[in-house]
Amino acid sequence: MKSNRKILIVDDDMDVILTIKTILKSKGYDVISAVNKEEAIEKLRKEPPDLAILDVMMTTPYEGFELAEQMLSSDEFKDIPFLIQSSIDILTTTDTKSSVQAMAREYRKDPDFKDLRVLLVKRISDGSAGIDYMDEKGKSHWFPVRGFIKKPVDAQKIIAEVEKHLA
């Protein structure tokens, strides 16, 4: 176990923060938290974490996604890995030839998925993953993510996922 690695939890639900914090602290991680995008950016800047866990819906419906995209496009934060925490089911694919983004595009052609606001896609073989979502103005977005944490929080799974990315 690596100790003193720092993890930032961004969630507007205090109980989720406390739960994840307690679980991760018991494994020796340092845990800090933020309740919205603004505070998260402040924390990322002041106390750069080794990993961030982002909730999706905060003050605005896609605040977590916006934060993720902002991190990816900023020189300052682009090397900080993050996991997306969501209760939405993750679509997995076993396709090894095309990219996950191409897989997401395939899903969008399927009538069952084409109108969903958010698709979380993950390839089983190498764990590559990403998010395809439509914002409130109807604009489509795509960005890659390291991984997902499924809500409700489960201690075993969250520890496994975190350790995988901090190994």
Binding site: D12, M14, A34, V35, N36, E39, M58, T59
Partner: peptide, 8 residues
């Protein structure tokens, strides 16, 4: 209203 100041 949810923000860092009201979270507790």
């Amino acid at each position: 209203i949810k923000n860092p100041k009201t979270k507790h």
